[in-house]
Amino acid sequence: MALNFIWLAMIVLGVCYAGFTGQIDLISPAAFAAAEQSVGILLEMAGILGLWLGLLNLAEKSGFVDMLAKVLYPIAAFLFPDIPRKDPAMGAIVMNMSANLLGLGNAATPFGIKAMEEMARLNGHSPVASNSMITFLVLNTSSVTLIPATVIGLRTKAGALNAVDIVLPTFLATVIGCTAGLLAERILRKWFS
């Protein structure tokens, strides 16, 4: 299990490296600072998840998601052939895709987790990831976006001549990265059953 291995490797390598370089005193503060920081993230996450999932509920109950789903359905149906059109999973996926496209990172995560929950239900709550889940993950880790808002903000603050000149290059890089990921998923799925 790759993530178990990477998790362990980061800790072991970190502690050993600090030990060999005579800086073992760096480890405990780093570990506890990270643990503390995670509580801050929990509080922030709870607020942001609450806000966006509250809005998602409004968007679902009022039929807003259905309208959006109609527009994005051709792409979603191509990427997720296993998911029925009217399923709540499709609604959450479509909302997540829209949030990513618009560069709303903190909205994309709540919709993404919601989509995962719906896909887990379709998958009979199996502990094994489905192909749709992995496809969905690629869309999110490569974050196809039209407006990289955070970076534009950083560049503006730093006094860039043209803060948005990176929009098209970013879009191209993200689309090509995402396509590569989707192709890799199609190829590798046979080997990992």
């Binding site: 992995i134 990265g177 990992f192």
Partner: peptide
């Protein structure tokens, strides 16, 4: 970790490799 953790996925299959492929190519 967050997406799979939220729904109790234990077997990630090729997810990590696919994600890292997208990162490298990107």
């Amino acid at each position: 970790a967050v997406y799979f953790g939220a729904v109790g996925i234990k077997k990630y299959r090729h997810a990590l490799w696919v994600g890292l492929t997208a990162d490298c190519v990107g």
